[in-house]
Simulated assay, not measured.
Amino acid sequence: MSVAAIPTPTKLHAAEPFLIQQDWAGYTPEQHDIWRELVLRRMPQLVQHACAEYLDGFHQIGLQADQLPDLTAVSKRLQPRTGWQSTPVSGFLPADAFFEMLAARMFPTTTWIRSRESMEYTPEPDIFHDVFGHVPMHAHPVFADFLEHYGKVCAALTSADALERMGRLFWFTVEFGVIRERGEIKVYGSGLISSHGECTQVVERIAGLEIRDFNLEQVLEEKVDTGNMQKVLYAIESFEQIYEATKEAEARLG
Results as ranks from 00 to 15, higher is better:
residue 126 D to Q: 14
residue 189 G to A: 12
residue 56 D to P: 00
residue 120 E to R: 11
residue 244 E to V: 01
residue 96 D to T: 12
residue 163 L to H: 12
residue 231 K to Q: 13
residue 211 I to D: 03
residue 166 M to I: 03
residue 251 A to Y: 01
residue 82 T to I: 04
residue 232 V to Y: 11
residue 212 R to G: 00
residue 178 V to Q: 02
residue 128 F to T: 05
residue 107 F to L: 09
residue 53 E to R: 12
residue 165 R to A: 04
residue 195 S to M: 13
residue 183 G to N: 07
residue 76 K to R: 15
residue 183 G to Y: 06
residue 186 K to R: 13
residue 144 A to N: 12
residue 129 H to V: 06
residue 87 T to G: 04
residue 64 Q to P: 00
residue 31 Q to H: 03
residue 137 M to C: 09
residue 197 G to R: 15
residue 115 S to D: 15
residue 222 E to Q: 15
residue 192 L to C: 09
residue 213 D to P: 03
residue 136 P to N: 06
residue 175 E to P: 02
residue 56 D to A: 11
residue 125 P to H: 12
residue 227 G to L: 12
residue 112 W to E: 10
residue 219 V to T: 10
residue 65 A to V: 03
residue 81 R to V: 14
residue 20 I to T: 14
residue 7 P to K: 07
residue 174 V to K: 06
residue 105 R to D: 07
residue 215 N to E: 14
residue 123 P to V: 07
residue 174 V to P: 09
residue 38 L to W: 08
residue 228 N to Q: 14
residue 67 Q to A: 07
residue 23 D to K: 10
residue 211 I to W: 05
residue 99 F to T: 11
residue 93 L to H: 07
residue 167 G to D: 02
residue 59 H to A: 14
residue 160 A to L: 12
residue 210 E to D: 11
residue 212 R to M: 03
residue 67 Q to M: 04
residue 33 D to Y: 04
residue 92 F to L: 15
residue 223 K to F: 00
residue 126 D to L: 15
residue 195 S to T: 10
residue 93 L to A: 10
residue 232 V to E: 15
residue 170 F to G: 02
residue 123 P to S: 07
residue 219 V to Q: 11
residue 175 E to W: 01
residue 58 F to Q: 04
residue 177 G to P: 01
residue 139 A to P: 04
residue 188 Y to H: 04
residue 18 F to Q: 04
residue 20 I to W: 06
residue 253 L to H: 13
residue 172 F to E: 04
residue 231 K to H: 11
residue 42 R to P: 00
residue 175 E to L: 07
residue 59 H to V: 11
residue 30 E to C: 00
residue 30 E to V: 03
residue 14 A to V: 06
residue 48 Q to P: 00
residue 133 G to K: 09
residue 175 E to M: 08
residue 79 Q to F: 07
residue 225 D to Y: 14
residue 204 E to Q: 13
residue 251 A to F: 05
residue 109 T to N: 08
residue 246 T to L: 02
residue 158 T to V: 04
residue 51 C to Y: 01
residue 177 G to R: 02
residue 100 E to M: 07
residue 169 L to W: 08
residue 102 L to P: 09
residue 3 V to R: 10
residue 87 T to F: 01
residue 106 M to R: 11
residue 77 R to W: 09
residue 128 F to C: 10
residue 63 L to Y: 12
residue 43 M to D: 02
residue 2 S to Y: 04
residue 205 R to Y: 00
residue 217 E to R: 13
residue 224 V to T: 13
residue 132 F to A: 08
residue 54 Y to V: 05
residue 250 E to G: 00
residue 164 E to W: 00
residue 235 A to T: 04
residue 242 I to C: 09
residue 85 Q to H: 12
residue 203 V to A: 05
residue 28 T to N: 09
residue 17 P to H: 14
residue 134 H to W: 06
residue 65 A to K: 12
residue 209 L to Q: 08
residue 162 A to H: 14
residue 11 K to C: 03
residue 217 E to L: 05
residue 25 A to H: 11
residue 180 R to F: 05
residue 184 E to R: 11
residue 187 V to F: 01
residue 91 G to N: 11
residue 13 H to T: 14
residue 137 M to H: 09
residue 100 E to W: 12
residue 5 A to W: 02
residue 122 T to D: 02
residue 189 G to W: 08
residue 45 Q to S: 13
residue 50 A to K: 07
residue 189 G to Q: 09
residue 169 L to R: 04
residue 45 Q to E: 08
residue 1 M to V: 06
residue 32 H to Q: 06
residue 237 E to P: 02
